[in-house]
Nucleic acid binder design. Structure first.
Length: 569
RNA sequence: GCGCCCAUAGUUCAAUGGAUAGAACGUAGCUUUGCGGAAGCUAUAAUGUAGGUUCGAUUCCUACUGGGCGCACCA
């Protein structure tokens, strides 16, 4: 299906070319906020006015007169200093409902990026540490982006660049050898490992020499020491099992989990390439660095003076691996904003090395801060993601029990999961923030207002109507939507594919959330103002379609955000 | 010190350079005869300061104020 906005843009372009000849211009489609300003609006007259030295209002009037309207547009008006406002015909909106219903779960997707490949890195928790709430952002945002990319036609490769390597492991291995035991760790893996990690940092405060012991253990690991190797592998496996439990609850999945260690043997080639191309040079203390022209950024550190590799080295190896393996058109890293400098540096180095032509995008988000306690893995102060998930489901369960005690226990639990987890995901996805997010339980798990349950409730209510509609054929109605509330809702529905494209291009899931919330609000307005089942038969048919099309839009939209919809709640 | 990001109702958040800045929570009222009141309706209140660019600025530019983050052997 072609997007309506593209069709309008095309119409305007044709008319401008015909009326004003060969000049350069760009048609951009706006969604006016006021109903009086139509459903789609174009402001090309301002640009033309300037280029032609004419009044933009006059140009808009000419265009309004000359444009050849297809039957799905009822009229075009020019307004204000030169806006062209298009009004979609109610007949078209009414007919369109059936298209939405027929497309079903495909409605909303498009082929804008067909034939292209995107590789994404999301989640990347650190092995041997529990996932904290802050990991939620990368995981949830990344999961939504993956689904959105897929919906606009990309082939999506979902990678999880696990933090399974580095000096921290040396420290952990040292701690385990000194204070740990296989038994206790086996019983309760992650908490015990965290304890050891915390213990190490406590002891370092008394004896700084431990830092070196930690580094030495990592060096041994990197050098292939069989005992450390074995220990490391064991810890990674235990962690992966733990993470998988959380991913299952969140319903996110990956195609690959290529941790940092995966690139261990792939860095040599990058380092040689950089030296050969003169991009890497020796810096202070014998370290290998990549300096930038005009000191645009601080130099990027490639190798420590002791010869060990760093984060940036592995990132370069990863980029090369992605390029060589999948030849992607786009690479996306979903990581918090504190790492922007690192990404700018390593993207620039990748450009200098000509590793890939694909744009590297750092989708950044604010860090999570906490009103009461400062979070620090080293000190063991951390709000566990698992706790948050439990609390979310608990709160939702309490609400379900209060609102709908008649559901079976099994249903209640299922609904509580959908509502609780959904609320949490929605809280993260509905805002577009690069500033820090202050974590509060109430905000994260809000079940009212602009929240997932609000949308889920609309869906459940609409489904309840559809269950009661009976067997009659409701395809044949001649009624054309006329009431303001039903039209307001119907006008919004064809926009889903446009919104998804925009959101995918801008890497902004919140655009979808905002749109869905508006659909839900308008549905509730319609629901309160007009009756469906008790309406006259011909009206009833059209309204049932409206209700069904709305459920399709809400279900599909929420699915892109990774949020499920309950039939009853 | 240098660099990056952010600043919108009491609070939490929206707004692709467009028309009257939009919600939610809160507060004050209202809606039972109609499909699920987890709802709807009404009222309330905001673009940090000073300039600039533009037909038009919350959005772009400059300075200031206030917050966050980062800046060589962590990731």
């Amino acid at each position: 299906m072609n997007l309506l906005k593209d069709k309008i843009a095309f119409l305007v372009e044709e008319t401008v070319k015909k009326e004003f000849g060969d000049i350069e211009f760009q048609v951009k489609i706006d969604y006016p906020s006021a109903d009086a300003h139509g459903d789609y609006s174009v402001n090309v007259a301002f640009e033309l006015g300037k280029k032609l030295g004419k009044a933009s209002r006059a140009i808009a009037e000419t265009l309004a007169q000359k444009i050849k309207l297809p039957d799905w547009i009822s009229r075009v008006e020019c307004a204000g200093p030169g806006f062209l406002n298009f009004f979609i015909a109610p007949q078209f909106l009414t007919d369109f409902l059936q298209e939405v219903i027929d497309e079903g779960e495909k409605f909303g997707s498009s082929k804008i990026a067909a034939g292209k490949t995107v590789v994404t890195d999301t989640s990347h928790p650190n092995v041997a540490k529990p996932m904290g709430v802050h990991h939620l952002l990368s995981t949830i945002i990344g999961c939504a982006l993956n689904k959105m990319f897929n919906a606009v036609g990309y082939k999506v490769i979902r990678d999880n660049y696990l933090g399974d390597y580095g000096t921290q492991f040396g420290k952990l291995i040292y701690a385990y050898k000194t204070w740990g035991s296989e038994e206790t760790v086996k019983k309760n893996p992650i908490p015990e490992l965290l304890k050891l990690y915390v213990k190490f940092h406590d002891e370092v405060e008394k004896d700084v020499a431990l830092e070196d012991r930690g580094r030495a253990e990592f060096k041994k690991l990197e050098g292939g020491d069989s005992e450390n190797r074995k220990l490391w592998k064991w810890i990674v496996d235990l962690s992966l099992q733990e993470f998988q439990g959380i991913y299952d609850r969140l319903d996110v999945s990956f195609d690959y989990i290529h941790g940092e260690s995966f690139y261990e043997d792939k860095m040599r080639a990058i380092i040689d390439m950089g030296i050969k191309k003169g991009v890497f040079v020796t810096g202070e203390g014998g370290a290998l660095i990549a300096p930038f022209e005009n000191e645009k950024y601080p130099p990027c550190l490639i190798k420590k003076s002791d010869g060990a590799t760093l984060y940036a080295t592995r990132d370069l190896a990863r980029t090369k691996y992605w390029e060589d393996t999948w030849h992607p058109d786009l690479m996306v890293m979903v990581v918090d904003v504190a790492q922007s400098l690192h990404f700018q540096q390593f993207f620039e180095v990748a450009r200098m090395l000509k590793i890939t032509k694909a744009p590297n995008i750092h989708v950044s988000f604010g860090r999570m801060s906490f009103p009461e306690k400062r979070m620090s893995t080293r000190k063991g102060n951390i709000i566990l993601l698992e706790e948050v998930l439990d609390e979310a489901e608990e709160r939702a369960l309490k609400l379900v029990e209060e609102k709908n005690p008649d559901l079976s226990e099994k249903q209640k639990k299922a609904v509580a999961r959908q509502v609780g987890i959904g609320a949490m995901k929605y809280a993260v996805l509905s805002q577009n923030r690069t500033t820090d997010i202050t974590f509060t339980w109430d905000k994260m798990l809000s079940l009212e207002g602009n929240s997932a349950p609000y949308l889920q409730y609309v869906y459940a209510r609409a489904r309840a109507i559809l269950r009661k509609r009976g067997e009659e054929n409701f395809r044949g109605g001649k009624y054309i939507l006329t009431e303001p509330q039903e039209l307001a809702l119907a006008k919004l529905l064809p926009k889903l594919p446009e919104v998804v494209v925009h959101a995918a291009q801008e890497f902004k899931p919140n655009l979808i959330a905002n749109y869905l919330f508006e659909v839900a609000q308008r549905f509730n307005g319609f629901y309160a103002a007009q009756e469906v089942l008790k309406a006259k038969p011909e009206i009833r048919a059209a309204r049932l379609k409206l209700v069904e099309a709305a459920t399709v839009v809400i279900k599909n939209g929420l699915k892109l955000l990774g949020i499920e919809v309950p039939e009853e709640m």
